[in-house]
Amino acid sequence: MKNKLFPQLFIIYLRYVIGFAFVFASIVKIQGLRFTTDSGAENPINTAWHFFETMYQSGLYWKFLGLSQLISGLILMTQKYAKLGALLFLPIIANVFVITISYDFRGTPVITGLMLLANFILIAWDWNTLKILVNKKPSFQSELRLENDSLWTILGILFFVLTIAAKIFASATTLLPIALSFVIIGTFGLVIGVKKHRKLQRGKLH
């Protein structure tokens, strides 16, 4: 299907459309302007307009959002670097979609939802090359790279669980044991990882 004319044209112009939407929406933010001429400060705090007014008043963050949208939209519209553009676009549009369903935006969630769906379509289109990010190491990558060992994945999961435990059960009595657990697990992983790496190096030499 990817070699056929119309699917390729559909993807090219889909990139143009959602890229345009982001670039268009980014300009007012970069300029430091509101979406509307009226302030939303007088609206209830749980309304969309008050939320946007808060972001607008942040100044730097408002412009940062605009710049992020501008860059991702531009990269997506270049076509040549569209894979990177689609990856940059995903967390931004996912965030926008969740915002629109969290507040009363009337029909806006339909638009942002379609943009999110379009983003997933673009990622699916390039999945044969993007899957390298979640699959096993590519054939051209050296076997001596430490992060390829499953040891580090196991350690990462342990650190993840400990971090959650530290937050949920944090107290004066549990802080020290949890901190020691981090140090012990980290040191254990370091020793095992270095030994395995040196063994692998010796095997390569022989």
Rank of each mutant, 00 (worst) to 15 (best):
N128C: 04
P138L: 03
F6E: 02
M77E: 01
S150V: 10
S181R: 06
K136W: 07
P109S: 06
V191H: 03
G107N: 14
F10Y: 10
S39H: 01
T129E: 15
G73Y: 06
K83E: 03
R15Y: 01
Q69I: 02
F120R: 04
N3G: 14
T112K: 08
A124K: 10
G73Q: 02
L88D: 02
K136C: 08
P44S: 09
L205G: 12
G113M: 01
V161H: 12
K63S: 15
I27G: 02
K80D: 07
T112V: 11
L122V: 03
N43T: 14
K29Q: 00
W152N: 01
M1T: 08
S72M: 14
I132Y: 05
K204Q: 15
N46Y: 10
L133G: 04
L114E: 10
T37R: 12
N46D: 15
V191C: 02
Q69N: 06
T174Q: 00
L176F: 09
A165V: 12
W152V: 02
N148Q: 10
L162E: 11
W62M: 13
I99G: 08
P138E: 07
A118M: 05
A124E: 06
I18P: 00
A179I: 09
F22P: 01
G59W: 06
L88W: 09
S72P: 12
L151H: 03
L180F: 13
I178L: 07
F120C: 13
Q8A: 00
I11V: 03
I123C: 10
Y13V: 04
M1W: 10
T36F: 11
Y16W: 05
K80F: 14
I18E: 00
I192H: 00
F64Y: 07
T37E: 10
V183W: 14
I154A: 12
L90M: 13
I132W: 06
R198A: 13
I132T: 11
L162C: 11
L158I: 13
K199S: 12
Q141A: 14
T37C: 03
L60R: 02
K83F: 01
V98S: 04
A166F: 15
W152C: 04
K196W: 06
W125P: 13
D38G: 13
I30E: 01
L133M: 08
P44I: 09
G193V: 01
F160T: 01
E143Q: 13
V98E: 00
N128L: 10
G85N: 12
N43I: 12
G186M: 11
I164L: 04
L117F: 15
I18W: 00
L176D: 03
G59Y: 08
F10S: 06
Q31R: 13
Y81W: 07
I157T: 04
A82W: 07
G32W: 05
K196D: 04
N148C: 01
K83R: 03
I164R: 02
K2S: 03
A165F: 04
V191N: 07
L76P: 06
T54P: 00
T153P: 06
L200P: 11
K195A: 15
W152M: 04
V23F: 08
F97V: 03
S171G: 10
W49H: 13
Y81K: 04
L146I: 09
F140P: 03
I71Q: 01
R106T: 12
L67E: 08
A21K: 04
L88P: 00
I99N: 10
R106S: 15
S26N: 02
V28A: 04
F6D: 02
